[in-house]
Amino acid sequence: MAEFVLVAGAWLGGWAWDEVVPRLRAAGHGAHPVTLSGLAERRGVPAGQETHVQDIVDVVERGDLREVVVVGHSYSGIPAGQAAERIGGRLKRAVFVDSNVPADGEAFTSRWPEDRVAALTASGFWPPLTAEDYAGQGLTEEQIARIVGGSTPHPAASLTEPAVLARPLGELPATYLKCLLDGDEPSPDVAELLTGESWELVELDTGHWPMFSQPAELARILLEAA
């Protein structure tokens, strides 16, 4: 039995996995949706990048979980990748869902223009997307309304603080899920990781938020990865 630790991307909480979790549990596995500090029901809790990594590690350690599949979506691939490294022998596999991946010493905003980073830091939060931003991602109007209605501002410090890795990310056993409506090819850093023996690529013909647009297919891919 695998234990899935599920972390959604920016602005979202554990609620984003509501249509995926029952499918994983019905297959006989554990499923643990994570709400990162500062988001959703944990809004107002101070949070940097290290805080988000520890949020994920804490779920594993508190539950004494083994055979862990850490799933990071979008932004959360960065803390999820670091957490996957830190839990050591408890890890079965990491799954990156159309996500960023951590690089030692690099932050989510490392390639942003300086003025944009400065504005983000000054405001303290990254505001959620609007409904129009979700066009072309395979989502119904109802699904978009659900995402927009549940989103909360994302804490800036988690985006500007650098990742810390003790060893090359390519050494982790990992699956990268590329959602094709969000671009045909993985980013160059992910493409390089996929050249190694430990990483595999899976593609899904949907947009960047498959837990909403195709939850059954996403659950199937997660089960196959485990």
Score class of each variant (00 low, 15 high):
105 G>S: 02
223 L>C: 07
226 A>T: 07
169 L>H: 04
21 V>L: 02
69 V>C: 09
209 W>H: 12
186 P>H: 07
96 F>Q: 13
167 R>H: 15
17 W>S: 05
131 A>H: 01
178 K>E: 07
220 R>P: 03
97 V>S: 04
142 E>V: 05
84 A>K: 07
128 P>T: 01
183 G>S: 06
138 G>D: 03
1 M>D: 08
201 L>V: 09
85 E>G: 11
20 V>C: 09
141 E>R: 09
41 E>H: 08
158 S>C: 10
35 T>N: 08
147 I>M: 13
35 T>R: 02
219 A>L: 07
46 P>V: 06
50 E>L: 07
162 P>W: 15
194 L>P: 06
106 E>C: 08
208 H>L: 03
197 E>F: 01
108 F>A: 14
197 E>W: 07
200 E>F: 00
99 S>D: 14
19 E>Q: 11
160 T>V: 15
196 G>T: 14
45 V>I: 15
30 G>R: 08
39 L>A: 05
45 V>G: 04
186 P>F: 12
13 G>F: 12
216 A>R: 04
196 G>H: 11
169 L>I: 08
94 A>T: 06
196 G>R: 11
188 P>C: 01
44 G>V: 02
14 G>I: 00
33 P>S: 04
6 L>A: 05
130 T>Q: 12
219 A>N: 03
28 G>E: 12
133 D>V: 01
224 E>C: 01
174 A>E: 06
140 T>I: 10
137 Q>V: 08
221 I>T: 13
7 V>M: 06
21 V>D: 03
181 L>G: 02
64 D>N: 14
68 V>M: 07
25 R>N: 03
57 V>T: 10
103 A>K: 09
209 W>T: 15
69 V>G: 05
38 G>R: 01
49 Q>R: 13
127 P>C: 06
75 Y>R: 04
116 R>D: 08
90 R>Q: 10
212 F>E: 14
188 P>I: 01
12 L>C: 12
34 V>S: 06
72 G>H: 12
181 L>D: 09
14 G>W: 02
93 R>A: 12
140 T>K: 08
214 Q>W: 07
129 L>H: 01
141 E>L: 03
187 S>N: 05
102 P>E: 05
124 G>H: 03
207 G>N: 00
108 F>I: 11
30 G>I: 02
164 V>D: 10
79 P>F: 15
210 P>G: 00
17 W>T: 02
185 E>M: 02
70 V>P: 04
131 A>E: 11
222 L>R: 02
200 E>D: 14
86 R>T: 04
115 D>Q: 09
59 V>P: 14
107 A>L: 07
58 D>I: 03
43 R>E: 09
148 V>P: 08
33 P>T: 02
7 V>L: 05
136 G>C: 14
200 E>S: 13
139 L>A: 05
62 R>H: 11
118 A>T: 10
188 P>S: 04
22 P>T: 00
110 S>H: 11
129 L>P: 00
226 A>W: 01
117 V>I: 10
161 E>F: 08
31 A>P: 13
33 P>D: 05
